[in-house]
């Protein structure tokens, strides 16, 4: 039997909101340590990796590892029947479940839904736990804003790191520009900007994907960008007390 109860069901809804435009059908994996999900976007340029640790749930039980194939669109239809302040419990009964049960619980109502599961054949990638040569932490709303602004000018956005900080730049038909974000160690953790640069990087990415990734900014006030030259970048949103959502994007290559 599998059972996982979110004290804050709104958080689960935010996670689904954050990934719904990137992935369609996903395998949700549950085991004794928690729930995880890994899926490539339809163009196979981005990778979504979610990890929710067992300790972050109000209640968690998983006796046997389980793979649950679901359609994000259908999951969202069911989640629309829940309130943002509901507690949400996910549950399966059988060893090889064909449905995933949802209980939505508020002060004055309890709702039960069953979502039909699918069998999905999806390639799982082994993402090595590497050290990145530049790691930047900055406010997630600031990153969202920069991507939106520069995305108006060109479809590709450059990121350059140095000991001094991080610079975003664009070069388009209409002209060019750059935004440098200053390092600061303000007492407000959500406004902090930190750069750890062992080796500077200079990379270019399709801003369209960043704009999709930025839907996840509702999960965390800070975003962590981890980069190494000519390698996919990782954009990480820490989900407080529960785990993290990592979004990987392959860089553009100059032929």
């Amino acid at each position: 039997m599998f059972e996982a109860k979110f004290e804050d069901g709104g958080l689960f809804k935010k996670i689904v909101e954050a990934i719904k435009e990137l992935v369609k059908n996903v395998n949700l994996e549950a085991n004794g340590t928690g729930i995880s999900l890994q899926a490539m976007d339809t163009s196979h340029v981005a990778l979504v990796a979610l990890q929710l640790n067992e300790k972050g749930f109000k209640k968690y039980r998983c006796e046997k590892s389980l793979t649950m194939g679901l359609s994000i669109e259908n999951l969202q239809k069911i989640l629309k029947c829940s309130g943002n302040d509901d507690q949400i419990t996910l549950r399966t009964q059988d060893e090889e479940p064909t449905t995933l049960s949802f209980t939505f619980e508020s002060k004055n109502r309890i709702s039960e839904f069953q979502l039909n599961l699918m069998s999905l054949d999806q390639e799982q990638l082994g993402v090595p736990d590497t050290e990145y040569s530049s790691v930047v932490r900055m406010p997630s709303n600031e990153f969202t804003k920069i991507c939106r602004e520069l995305g108006n000018i060109n479809e590709a956005i450059g990121i350059e790191t140095s000991k001094e900080g991080i610079k975003f730049y664009v070069k388009g038909d209409i002209g060019e520009g750059q935004v440098s974000v200053k390092i600061n160690d303000t007492e407000k953790p959500e406004e902090r900007v930190e750069c750890e640069v062992d080796e500077p990087v200079n990379l270019s990415f399709a801003v369209r994907y960043f704009n999709l990734f930025n839907k996840a900014s509702a999960l965390s006030s800070q975003v962590i960008l981890s980069m190494s030259q000519d390698q996919p970048l990782v954009i990480e949103y820490i989900i407080e007390e529960m785990g993290s959502l990592k979004l990987y994007l392959a860089p553009k290559i100059n032929d």
Binding site: S43, E123, L125, G126, V127, A156, S204, P232, N254
Partner: peptide
Amino acid sequence: GPNQRTINSYFSPK
């Protein structure tokens, strides 16, 4: 112009 490799060309299957 700038091109893009797929993400699974960087990471091997599990």
